[in-house]
Amino acid sequence: MSTMQPITATPSAQRLSTLRATFRRREAGTFIVSKYHTAPIKIAKAFPLEGQLGVIVMDVSPGLLDGDRYDFQWNVEDGAHVYVTNQSFTKVHPSHAASSGSSMSQRFELGQGAVVESMPEPVMLYRDAAFASESEVRLSRGALWMGADVFCPGRTPRGERFAYREFRNKLNVYYGNELIYAQHQRIEPSRQELFAPGCMAELTHTGVFYAFSDRIGMPEADVVREALNVLPKHEGQPLIWGVSLTYKYGFAVMAAGNAAWVLQEALEAAWSSLRLHLLHLQPLNFLR
Rank of each mutant, 00 (worst) to 15 (best):
A270I: 01
P283E: 12
V223M: 11
S12P: 00
L139P: 07
L125R: 07
T10I: 11
G154Q: 06
R165W: 02
V137Y: 01
S105T: 13
L276A: 14
Q237K: 13
N258G: 09
F251G: 03
V55K: 04
K170G: 02
L231R: 08
Q14F: 10
G101P: 00
H184C: 04
P122W: 14
Y247R: 15
M119V: 13
F131P: 01
A97E: 15
E220D: 13
G242F: 08
G207K: 11
E220L: 03
N285P: 00
P232D: 09
S272H: 03
H93Y: 09
V92C: 12
Q106L: 13
A260R: 09
F209G: 00
N172L: 02
F167N: 10
P157C: 08
R186D: 08
A182P: 01
W261L: 05
G63S: 09
R26H: 14
A132F: 03
L53I: 10
G159Q: 10
P157N: 05
L231N: 08
D78V: 06
G257I: 08
D128M: 07
C152S: 15
H277R: 12
M1H: 09
A270V: 02
Y36P: 00
R186E: 14
L239V: 04
H96D: 12
E220W: 06
Y249I: 01
Y247E: 15
T156R: 06
M4I: 07
I32N: 12
S95L: 03
A129N: 07
Q14V: 14
L276S: 14
S190D: 15
G257N: 01
R168E: 14
A252V: 15
G154E: 05
Q87E: 14
R186T: 13
K248E: 15
F151H: 08
H277M: 05
F72K: 05
A182V: 00
Y83V: 05
N285G: 01
D149M: 01
T10L: 14
L281I: 07
E265N: 04
D128N: 10
A211I: 11
T90W: 00
S105G: 02
R161H: 12
V230G: 00
W241E: 07
V84P: 03
V230Q: 15
I43A: 07
M254D: 12
H96L: 14
I7N: 09
Q192H: 12
S135G: 06
S190L: 11
N229D: 15
P62W: 06
L228F: 06
V116D: 06
V60H: 03
R69T: 06
